[in-house]
């Protein structure tokens, strides 16, 4: 099953079993079914709760907040993650703050889905990974779709938090298969974190921490490192990236003494820096070298494939950083 199909069936299941769930977004109705076809079939089955909206990202995020205020559960599809900037006020100033600012916990079940990332030649305003702009906002949890996490469970968990959540969906994942770590590697899930490894997760020379959208690039790097450099890596893929529970991560990094954190956005003041800092704090004196960070170059994302490739993280970027961290 492709990741897109898993997401689509997760939405079908959610709407089928819970009459309080709404889905709003631009061009999500049939027969179009959304720009990436994630919402196909939903408006036909659930008219009245699956609403194709005007081009009003801020407005529909607000409508979702209003639905959530009444006890409903609302999912918003932002057509391209870049456009979530237009919903910043509703997400930050209304939904996230309202969870706490009225003096008692106000449950707001609301998920904003954001297709993110480049690699498809859409250019600067349709390729961004805007994660860093939403990190560290009280009352807001950030998740990323991964090939190892069933989106049915992820959506259920987000609603169970009773606070607004953003689900980042790296566009390159949509056509990839679920639960496929390739022939070389095994995978399993420990708490929130999927682990991809050769034979024994405790035998890794280096731990790679990467959100779902980077999993395939990380696995390709792991394969190259193993076959060409005899370096054994453990890949950890969290579902919730912020707040990020480091408990399943710390023992592995402590054992290996080396870690690399990957993200698709430009580096600095972002997820990678945050995770690296926390690892340094937790494991000071036990790391052979500083935690390596892998990220896009500090630049907008060009449209032409050869230029885009120069900016975005490639498999080779991850491989090179692992070797540097290991002192190679």
């Amino acid at each position: 099953m492709r990741v897109a199909d898993n997401l689509n069936s997760a939405l079908h299941e959610l709407l089928e079993h819970d009459p309080d769930v709404y889905l709003l977004g631009e061009d999500i109705a049939d027969p179009y079914g959304g720009a990436f076809k994630i919402t196909k079939g939903l408006s036909t089955r659930f008219p009245g709760r699956v609403l194709s909206t005007p081009i009003s990202e801020g407005g529909i995020a607000g409508v979702a907040g209003g639905l959530a205020l009444t006890g409903d559960k609302a999912i918003v599809e932002i057509m391209f993650g870049d456009f979530v900037a237009l919903a910043f006020d509703q997400i930050v100033n209304f939904a996230s703050k309202s969870v706490a600012m009225y003096g008692k916990s106000l449950p707001l079940r609301m998920v904003v889905r954001c297709p993110t990332g480049g690699g498809r030649g859409y250019g600067p305003t349709h390729s961004q990974s805007p994660h860093k702009h939403f990190i560290g906002i009280p009352g807001l949890s950030l998740y990323e779709v991964s090939p190892f996490h069933d989106n049915r469970a992820v959506l259920r968990e987000m609603f169970a938090r009773q606070e607004p959540c953003i689900l980042f969906e790296d566009k390159v994942l949509y056509t990839r298969h679920m639960y496929d770590a390739g022939e070389l590697f095994k995978w399993d899930v420990d708490r929130d974190v999927a682990r991809v490894y050769l034979d024994d997760p405790a035998a890794a020379d280096c731990v790679i921490i990467a959100p779902g959208g980077m999993a395939h690039r990380a696995m390709a790097a792991m394969r190259g490192l193993l076959l060409e450099h005899e370096v054994n890596c453990l890949l950890l893929v969290p579902s919730r990236i912020h707040p990020f529970d480091l408990d399943p991560v710390i023992p592995h990094v402590a054992r290996a003494g080396a870690a690399v954190v990957c993200e698709d956005g430009p580096g600095g003041a972002g997820w990678g820096a945050e995770v690296a800092h926390r690892l340094h704090t937790a494991l000071w004196g036990r790391l052979a070298r500083p935690v390596g960070t892998v990220h896009a170059r500090d630049c907008i994302i060009p449209a032409a494939p050869h230029l885009e490739k120069e900016i975005l993280v490639q498999e080779s970027t991850i491989r090179q950083t692992v070797l540097e961290v290991l002192g190679g």
């Binding site: 801020g58 529909i60 607000g62 409508v63 907040g65 209003g66 009444t70 006020d89 100033n93 209304f94």
Partner: peptide, 27 residues
């Protein structure tokens, strides 16, 4: 910033109009 029963106020101009529309959709 007041919330009591079905009354809610917030301090950003215009922000509550889409929220009220969402509530109206539920109603």
């Amino acid at each position: 910033h007041i919330h009591r029963d079905r009354y809610l106020s917030t301090g950003v101009q215009g922000e509550s109009v889409p929220v009220a529309a969402g509530v109206a959709l539920h109603l």
